[in-house]
């Protein structure tokens, strides 16, 4: 993969210009076309076509079991890891279909990072959690690695909390800190897209709010796709919302509309019912 180093100062300058840069561009970062997912032959999700705009937060909402997480996993081919799982359809990123067999998934997953429901820092030190993937991806220069680590930790607001104990085990951090560390770990690889699978649902309310604020800040530099069960959260953070539903045990996409529209002027009967809490 290509590793272009961005200095910390540059990033800070970028950060200070956040408000100016915040204009959404509506450029498409990821385009899923006709995604159907089957588990051992049983269809779990059918024919989802969805465009994800660059530098926006797209929230995937819907009741449990409607295939949101499966869909999210298909966007960086994490579905490859599930035995018996088969994905048909296309996902275009940078003009290529990532479900082509010849795609380098390791490089792909650097570009499209993923955060899980339960924080999963490795049983290594805080530093090694970020350093090891960088080393594995060929960043051999220790000074550059250090700067990237510092930058990533600063981005998630963890630097001031952990800078004096970088060599302590990551598992000793609190749940919220662990989740931010996992986000920093993905950011250190300089992705353009972050996939988040209910990133706050395993956290306490205070940590959850911190992570939520972080996700909002991430929009300035990254495209974020977030699965959430929490409608309030979707309303607070998302630019657009995709509602998934299921019928006969198989998930499908009901609609994908800007957040304002879905919460204030929903047209679809299912959407209306779900938003109002009548169903789901």
């Amino acid at each position: 993969m290509k590793l272009e180093f961005v200095s910390y100062d540059e990033c800070k300058r970028a950060d200070s210009n956040i408000r100016q840069l915040a204009q959404p561009t509506h450029e498409v970062a990821l385009a899923a076309k006709g995604i159907t997912i089957t588990y051992s032959g049983a269809r779990a999700l059918r024919d989802v076509t969805l465009s994800i705009a660059r530098n926006e937060i797209t929230a995937l909402i819907g009741p449990s079991g409607c295939g949101k997480t499966s869909f999210l996993s298909s966007l960086n081919r994490m579905t490859d890891l599930i035995p018996g799982c088969k994905v048909t359809g296309h996902v275009y990123h940078d003009g290529i279909n990532i479900h082509e067999p010849k795609t380098d998934v390791q490089e792909l997953r650097c570009h499209i990072g993923m955060i899980f429901q339960k924080p999963n820092p490795f049983p290594l030190s805080i530093r090694r959690n970020l350093e090891m993937p960088l080393k594995e991806h060929g960043l051999t220069n220790a000074a550059q690695r250090y700067e990237r680590i510092e930058h990533a930790l600063t981005e998630v607001g963890l630097w001031s909390e952990v800078k004096d104990r970088l060599d302590q085990p990551a598992l000793a951090l609190s749940g919220g800190q662990q989740q931010r560390l996992c986000i920093a770990r993905a950011l250190a690889l300089e992705p353009s897209i972050l996939l988040m699978d209910e990133p706050c649902s395993a956290l306490d309310p205070i940590s959850s709010a911190v992570v939520e604020d972080l996700i909002i800040r991430l929009r300035e530099k990254y495209t974020v796709v977030v699965v959430t069960h929490n409608l309030g959260q979707a309303k607070r953070i998302a630019d657009s919302v995709a509602l998934f539903w299921f019928q006969d045990g198989c998930g499908y996409l009901v609609e994908h509309t800007p957040t304002d529209a879905i919460f204030n002027a929903a047209q679809n009967a299912i959407t209306k019912a779900y938003i109002s809490g009548a169903r789901g």
Binding site: M78, N120, F122
Partner: peptide, 10 residues
């Protein structure tokens, strides 16, 4: 989850 974490990091 560590295996998944590792492969999500490429």
């Amino acid at each position: 989850e560590w295996r998944r974490g590792a492969s999500a990091l490429g």
